[in-house]
């Protein structure tokens, strides 16, 4: 799960981004990408850019393109002056431990 430290200079932006990403739902699992633990990092370090490091629940998820599009669209909507770049990684691979409590409840785990 992505942690946001209060000492992080971009904590406000990250919290705004996280709020927006709660609206991006995995269409198959019906759980948002934050509670699924798919977002590994949101990097606001570069000016006019957001670098998102994220994963998918399975390496060849047929809905992968829809999910990454959803993340890009949601962030571009609230940060129109920043270019969103998504870095997809499977290192570490997604696992059950990455679900938040809310994600576990929604999945009926």
């Amino acid at each position: 799960m992505m942690d946001i430290a209060f000492t992080d200079p971009h904590a406000t932006e990250k919290m705004k981004a996280q709020e927006a990403l709660y609206n991006v739902i995995d269409p198959e699992l019906f759980v948002n990408v934050i509670d699924l633990g798919l977002i590994y990092d949101l990097d606001f370090g570069e000016e006019a850019a957001i670098n998102v490091t994220m994963t998918l629940s399975t390496p060849h998820c047929p809905m992968g393109e829809a999910i990454t599009n959803g993340v890009r669209n949601a962030l571009e909507l609230i940060f129109p002056d920043r270019k969103v770049t998504i870095y997809l990684t499977f290192d570490p691979p997604w696992s059950f431990e990455m679900l938040t409590e809310e994600g576990r409840t929604q999945l009926g785990v």
Binding site: L56, P62, G64, E65, I86, Y87, T89, F90
Partner: peptide
Amino acid sequence: MADIHIGKA
């Protein structure tokens, strides 16, 4: 960290 290709439908 590479931008991994997702199989396009």
